[in-house]
Design a binder for these strands. Structure first.
Lengths: 272, 272
DNA sequence: CAAATAGTGTCTCTAAGACAATATCAC
DNA sequence: GTGATATTGTCTTAGAGACACTATTTG
């Protein structure tokens, strides 16, 4: 007879059942300001996603989201932060949970459940760390557009590497969107579907402006702010309206950006 | 030397690392129409949550969300649906993922990660299955209100059982809300925090109207629709405005509800 | 008729989109 | 001055909240 909880727990064994391995994978995004085509024109922005080239089987030489196995004593969030720091040397300010992937057979190595996160990294912090072109981790520029039937083309490109995947958008009864893989391209595992969900989560979150600050340095112009928003959402916004909408989230500084070949822009910072 | 992926996988072993146990837990909600205080007055609604009384250690005789361990070969969603069906004999139309709880030490039995889902069950289907008062599974009526400091009182009551927990609302950098337990009341594990998150997810989702239909029978009056919405969101809405807002989600039938002591109401059904 | 809910019409206010106009710099 | 961005002002429109009003039934 075991009466006390203490006694019960000291005799308790979890190990009779088979257990899955658990991973955290991260879709880390960055917005980079590209080159300017003209000395006085503002640069175009690109949305970048970090991928790592797999060195071993399975999916050897294919590209995958960074991630790794959960260690005992850490949360899945800590695991995600650790993995992204190992790849980039940057510790992101925050990560956002996107979903759990537990479909049997999704990983040929066995029973593996993956927790997907989105993280946002500022261009500044990545530049400081330098970028090793020979590394197996690279930032790919993202293009993700859907047609009226919910078929999305995902194109990821970095120098002469171009990964193309095709996804089909599905809705759950609760209105959540997820993606079914039509063509995985050269992406490992079910990571094409993960990237789709991560992009959808990123775009939906970007409406709140709050997360946009993670892409920006401490002080920024409203135009830079707007370009980041437009790049993520893949839309264009009239400057007058954008300024009105974000006015309650930012406050002026007394600094300006000069020497750009046109009217100087006031620098703002996040309010509160 | 292993060159082929096939060869690699046939030799691959996942079992060298310790692995966590994984569960799916479900916050199953129902809206019941209570008694009417007056022969011609419409009944008040109550939001109900299904809890099970724990028969064994740990947390023996405390109340918990229904849930159980993930089996090999099923997704966490299938596991959640299976668990809710085992407890209620009802298979919900849909479940919604809410979050993953992986804090070390959250379960005294060991390393256990829990996937939380919300499900919505129609009053009709529960009534059909009958309700066993001697069962260890019971529907508790929910009260969940916060003050201006983000401190929430969660009260769950069923007959003479009253569970009271206190939670503090926290925001992640990405604007997600979660809850820290101040006082767990008589709820097992970290389930008080889970219930808080489930309620927040339910309320946020209820804004879309879509999920409200899962609480309703196939044909319903607009007033019934509105009461469900008001019960979940804990707000009150002017009928004229509510009708305007939902008009695009419903379509008329030619049936009426008569004999209620006042003007008959037209029955509607979900559009498309 | 009284009590209650069912259902409609319309005023106002606000937030977002469109667009015009002005301001200011580097060259 | 020219070419570019920065910044402001205002018209319009869509949607939500408030509220007054009418309609219909049962006891």
């Amino acid at each position: 007879m075991m009466d006390s909880e203490k006694e019960f727990l000291s005799n308790y064994k979890l190990s009779d059942y088979e257990r899955p391995s658990v991973t955290s994978d991260v879709a880390a995004f960055m917005v980079s300001s590209g080159d300017r085509e003209n000395y006085r024109r503002n640069p175009e922005n690109k949305l970048l996603l970090l991928l790592v080239k797999r060195g071993g089987h399975p999916f050897k030489d294919k590209w995958a989201l960074p991630g790794g196995f959960l260690n005992k004593g850490e949360t899945i969030e800590e695991c995600a932060l650790r993995e992204i720091q190992e790849e980039t040397n940057v510790l992101p300010a925050a990560i956002m949970p996107v979903g759990v992937f537990s479909q049997p057979g999704r990983d040929p190595r066995g029973w593996i459940i993956s927790n997907l996160f989105v993280s946002v990294i500022g261009e500044e912090s990545v530049k400081q760390m330098g970028c090793d072109d020979a590394s197996d981790a690279q930032w790919f520029s993202v293009s993700f557009e859907g047609d009226e039937n919910g078929v999305y083309d995902l194109t990821l490109s970095y120098e002469d590497v171009e990964l193309k995947a095709v996804l089909s958008e599905e809705k759950t009864r609760f209105g959540r969107t997820f993606f079914r893989i039509i063509d995985s391209g050269d992406l490992a595992f079910d990571h094409a579907a993960m990237i789709g969900m991560a992009l959808a989560a990123l775009r939906s979150e970007a409406k709140n402006y709050d997360m946009i600050f993670d892409f920006l340095p401490e002080k920024f112009t409203l135009t830079a702010f707007q370009k980041v928003q437009e790049t993520i959402m893949n839309v264009s916004i009239l400057p007058a309206n954008f300024r009105r909408m974000v006015s309650c989230y930012v406050e002026e500084t007394d600094e300006y950006v000069r020497g750009e070949g046109h009217r100087p822009a006031k620098l703002y910072k996040r309010k509160k």
